[in-house]
């Protein structure tokens, strides 16, 4: 019973981390209808940015994250403005291939500089390694707890921005009907750049949380891309709260799978669950868009 309860607690909290990994992929798909294959690699790029900044320039991790966010927003601007926007009107495939190419390039650049050595940001997170709550029935790992809280804060903040600000409404309008948005005076290509910027800012926060919770490698991005896919397929592409639900369900199912069938089954149970959701609810739990 204790083990089961611990799996449920850890699964829910791990789901927060999964959710924040998936947010960027979800909003880019929701707004631009673009599947950003480079999402996981760009998130890991931000983990490396933070590591380099903390180790060499700014020891304060919060400032380092802020600098990394700025750097990643610049990366997003260049990526979107000069690569994706150049092909986005030419159909789905060219943009998909561009993101795939960027993913391979970034991964190779990371390997040149950092080889395939394991890296970690856990030393910068004072909650890592210990439990924040301990009872007889279960404990709450500090890093998982922080991951979950940050994910909820990011998702709530993004929802408020999308609902209450002109720029947020313009992004939603672009997603809803690009032509009508242009007729309202919205520069939709600028909205795509802003969306990619928001996605990369959230990916940077995710990059820090991933790096302070687990070890990471230059090639870790593709593994996290699969997690992000799982989250958005379950929760629904383009839905912020769907992403949180998707993350929690994926984390929960994975840890319960590991508990019942053995640790080797953790990933498999998560993705079998994803396939079931895909078959029963093709748009995910809270998704409204059509999956192409």
């Amino acid at each position: 019973m204790q083990v089961l309860l611990q799996c449920v607690v850890s699964g829910i909290l791990l789901g927060g981390l999964y959710a924040i990994i998936g947010i960027g992929l979800s909003i880019v798909f929701g707004i631009m209808k673009l599947t950003n294959i480079a999402h996981g690699t760009l998130m890991i790029l931000s983990s490396f940015f933070i590591m380099v900044i903390v180790n060499n320039f700014i020891p304060n991790v919060f400032l380092a994250i802020l600098v990394a966010i700025v750097l990643m927003v610049i990366v997003a601007f260049l990526f979107q403005k000069f690569l994706v926007n150049a092909v986005i009107d030419k159909g789905d495939e060219p943009a998909l291939l561009v993101t795939f190419g960027v993913s391979i390039c970034v991964q190779n650049i990371l390997e040149i500089f950092f080889a395939s050595n394991p890296q970690s940001l856990s030393a910068t997170n004072k909650f890592a390694g210990g439990n924040i709550i301990e009872t007889k029935l279960f404990s709450v790992p500090g890093s998982y707890f922080i991951d979950f809280v940050v994910a909820v804060i990011v998702i709530v903040a993004l929802s408020i921005i999308m609902k209450r600000t002109d720029i947020g409404r313009a992004i939603r309008a672009t997603s809803d009907n690009k032509r009508a948005a242009e007729l309202m005076g919205v520069n939709t290509k600028v909205m795509f750049v802003v969306t990619m910027g928001i996605a990369m800012a959230t990916a940077t926060i995710a990059g820090y949380l991933v790096g302070s919770t687990f070890v990471f490698y230059s090639y870790s991005g593709s593994g996290y891309l699969i997690i992000a896919f799982g989250v958005v397929v379950i929760g629904g592409m383009g839905s912020l709260f769907g992403t949180l639900i998707g993350g929690i369900l994926l984390g929960l199912v994975q840890l319960l799978g590991a508990n019942f069938f053995g640790t080797g089954w953790q990933a498999l149970t998560g993705y079998v669950f994803m396939l079931i959701i895909l078959a029963v609810l093709p748009n995910g739990i809270l998704g409204s868009g059509k999956r192409s």
Binding site: D166, R169, A170, R172, A173, D176, A180, M184, S288
Partner: peptide
């Protein structure tokens, strides 16, 4: 071409 996923007020705000 109203914004289907938005409320009437949000459409007007746009």
């Amino acid at each position: 071409l109203v914004f289907e996923g938005m409320s009437v007020k949000e459409n007007l705000l746009m």
